[in-house]
Design a protein around this nucleic acid. Sequence first.
DNA 1: CTTTTGAGGGTTTTT
DNA 2: CCCTCAAAAG
Length: 770
Amino acid sequence: MSSQPTVKPPHYLDELNEVQRQAVTTTDGPVLVIAGPGSGKTRVLTYRIAHLIEQGSAPWEILALTFTNKAAREMKDRIAKVVGPRASNIWAGTFHSLFARILRVEANHIGYPSNFTIYDTDDTKSLLGQIIRELSLDPKVYQANAIKNRISSAKSNLITPKSYALNEELLAQDKQAKMPLVSQIYTKYVERCKRAGAMDFDDLLFRLYELLQNHPEVVKKYRQKFRYVLVDEFQDTNTLQYAIVKRLVQYEGSPRNICVVGDDAQSIYAFRGATIQNILDFENDFSQYGIQTFKLEQNYRSTETIVATANAVIGHNSRQIQKKIWSDKGHGEKIRVIREMDDNLEGRRVADTILEQKNRFHLQNQDIAILYRTNAQSRIFEEYLRRFNIAYRVYGGLSFYQRKEVKDLIAYLRLVVNPNDEEAFRRVINFPKRGIGDTSVGKVISLAGQQSMSLFDALRHVALPTRARHAADGFIDVIEKAQRKSATASAYELAEAIARRSGLLDFYRNDNSIEGMGRLENFQALLDGIKSFVEEDSVSDTENLPDKSLATYLQNIALLTDFDTEGDESKDVVTLMSVHAAKGLEFKSVFVVGLEEKLFPSWMSMDSAEGMDEERRLFYVAITRAELFLTLSYANTRYRYGKMTMNEPSRFLAEVPAEAVESTSYSRRSNDHEFDPLAQQRARVTGVVPPARLRGTAKFAEPRVDMENFQPSPSEEIVAGVRVLHQKFGEGKVTKVDGGAGNQIATIHFSDLAQPEKRIMLKFAKLQVL
DNA sequence: CTTTTGAGGGTTTTT
DNA sequence: CCCTCAAAAG
């Protein structure tokens, strides 16, 4: 909203190809965009929104739903580049965060406090475990995790506890699984969440759906508000999410300005209820309203070799929307396949290859990613990257907000904001230890159950032995004082006071172990985080004032994942993450590791055709992250639960076209000079890996050229016949140059090297003509 | 009520 | 292999 005269608007439309431009400018009516990997999907989405605003729409009329906070942030940033600070008023965010925001405003309609708690996965599991115990069921038969999935999937399919109890099919399934009482657990679970003023992740969707369903005046409000609705990664929406979106745009007299963007081939979240059926349904649901479909088929990310491989792989799936993904980036490097004897060697070989690529192609760490099927696989790669002195960051696993020490303080804060929060209560009632043990807590729980009151209220009234009573009063006092203080104090002051008065701060201060120090650091970091939340001038809504309350803070962080904790951002590090987590990202060089039957594809998915198809889509996602170099690896044996297991190579490897694979890949006795077969042997026999420094690094460590006088020449000057200087390899003679413009590869003979022939991509290499 | 010790069990993927 | 959770001792 700058009052300065608008500079000539950037010709953002010029940055688009024909189909992209149509997808951007067809603003009215239903639009379906099928977007292959690397086809400029995000660009279309962001420019479309920018275009809407340039055309006169108000930012707050636009609802853009994504799956990750990162995607939302990126979208907003990119829109801001076109339209300026107005972008901050767009309703762009994850389904969960935006819906939470609406629910906060409308909570009273559905009998929830507006400062409701959001239960994370741990809370959910803990509550389910509690209920299972209360019902005297065997926790080995009724596993909290399994029940959680069952309930989650029910909610995702719009099944309430009541309809669950009447659903013969579900009941039969439960019976078959020897868990006939899931239905009762579900009912109880929902009651308990309600009583605690808490919603789990699925509730954020389901409760909103019910709200829109049952309150005509509310749904009307949001229908009028959101004139344009966009959904990213539409193939990953579940039935419930689509039902909500439809409720918002599908009604009498609606302009039906809805745009969904997705790729059926990249649907990888069926396990949490996502269904490609939504794409097909979308076409049906809106066909009579002039739906327009655009297919983005040109891949701007990857070499032709990689695209061809991806196409060949996905071709093994049966059901898919017809499209032809293509690239004009030249063939580039072939795909390398690495086979090793065991997971340890796989780790080392990958680290080794990373080092090689960095030197040969002048890649930075941040150009490189290692992608695996399960997070547990990261460990070995971390180990070798550390040994090779390669900086890295592991994504996934537990996020900052899931650490014990962080959750402890958060639980106190949650209790201040919402004294009915049962899980928070149970977490901190006796932590730090204050002498309220299991028996006392048991009394509180049973009183709360009888009287249908909150645990916190029950604690006030329950009869306890003097000692425990005293402790309980102290605890109540801490919480109540903070509650009173919350009227005047900032979230930070409150948190700081709680940290001291609860005894948590002292507890962590007094822990002088190594881990203890780390915990204290995290604890402090949390406080700092709250402080910056309070101080930073976050975007103000046009409708609402910036909300700095503790309740808002808590609801925000409940929806953050590991990706949202910044910190080492902008550092030059190799990325390690699961394939799932890598969706939407791209790297110059990608290693897809652990390509073995029962691992990738996962054993869990192997008994059904749909499961296999999803695994294959996952593999498709993995390989299409690569721009230039793709390396696939597997090991013959691998440790699992400390036991060695034999593995067949993944069937997906056989689906990679042979002509796309580097011919030496399959041979262990490759003439790869970086490779030392003897070291390999030694490792195999002794189980000891020779120190990394002896290999790889030493070979490349000292530059053969003095950097001072080195001046890279433009790639045009690199032609067959000239003598050149390379930073690492020294002096050499170019024997030939091939590959299309922009992807030229020079073959150079460096006589100083053990293996003198090098193929170097001119795009990256720094070569000086002599 | 707290601490220690041992057995058993779990690994797909995430908001 | 590692972590969580339950029983038994302090």
